[in-house]
């Protein structure tokens, strides 16, 4: 506990010194403004002008927006790890009792907690659509797991920040998953199942309607998330210079 406190204290100092916190808060606020105000506004306008009913897509939109916090926080965490590796802070922590695993667990759980909180606030304060609270637990777990997946995708493969940007861009493909799930009619869409958010979308669209399918997607989704995360963790632990 004391170790964690020490790490947290160092982070708080850092956060007040640079713009990471601003980035997190700002990103979240923009997200909420969109969901609370802009989407309903857009919806009314589209219905009025183009006779296009955006309401049909509310669940898809909420699903898409639910993915933004984990991917955004994951990217930020990934870059913090890269930055601290450049500055040899990780090497320094690795020779203290915290160890590298402690450092990683701490960084990743903070961002996971932030993502999960953000998801619940977003999912149950908007007036557009939501899945039954009873069924929200497993999708929330999966969404939370996407934070370390994104962070590690950047931190394990990238040698430096610039490569981190390239991998970050690649991680952005995960945003396409909900649309592929929703718009691709054929069974080809299951190819997109290697993208973890695909299964989150699956649970979103079956939660209230098709319970057996919901459980199937939940089981496969948790397995995929767990597998991807385990592989990335292994790569990160082994790849550290």
């Amino acid at each position: 506990m004391k170790k964690i406190m020490a790490l947290a204290l160092a982070d708080i100092k850092n956060i007040t010194r640079d713009s990471t916190l601003i980035l997190v808060l700002f990103g979240t606020v923009v997200l909420y403004i969109m969901v609370w105000f802009l989407i309903p506004l857009l919806s009314a306008l589209l219905l009025d002008k183009l006779v296009f009913n955006l309401a049909d897509y509310y669940l898809l939109i909420i699903c898409f927006f639910s993915l933004i916090p984990p991917l955004l926080f994951g990217m930020i965490t990934g870059f913090i790890i890269l930055e601290e590796r450049d500055e040899e802070i990780i090497t320094f922590i690795a020779v203290t009792p915290v160890r590298k695993t402690g450092y990683l667990a701490y960084k990743l759980s903070i961002s996971m907690a932030a993502a999960i909180t953000s998801f619940y606030v977003l999912a149950y304060t908007n007036s557009l659509a939501h899945i039954p609270l009873l069924y929200s637990f497993f999708p929330a777990i999966m969404i939370a797991m996407e934070t370390p997946i994104t962070a590690l995708l950047i931190a394990s493969f990238a040698e430096n920040k610039v490569e981190g940007m390239a991998f970050g861009k690649l991680a952005g493909i995960m945003f396409l998953a909900p649309f592929i799930y929703y718009f691709v009619p054929s069974h080809w869409k299951y190819l997109a199942g290697i993208l973890p958010p695909f299964w989150v979308t699956g649970t979103f669209f079956t939660a209230g309607s098709n319970i057996s399918l919901y459980w199937l997607y939940t089981v496969i989704g948790l397995l995929i998330h767990g597998l991807v995360l385990a592989v990335l963790l292994k790569i990160f632990i082994n790849s550290q210079r």
Partner: peptide, 16 residues
């Protein structure tokens, strides 16, 4: 900007 996250924060705001 000081670091990448600092850049992100500024770029996100101005980009919007």
């Amino acid at each position: 900007s000081q670091n990448v996250n600092d850049y992100f924060a500024k770029a996100l705001g101005l980009g919007l």
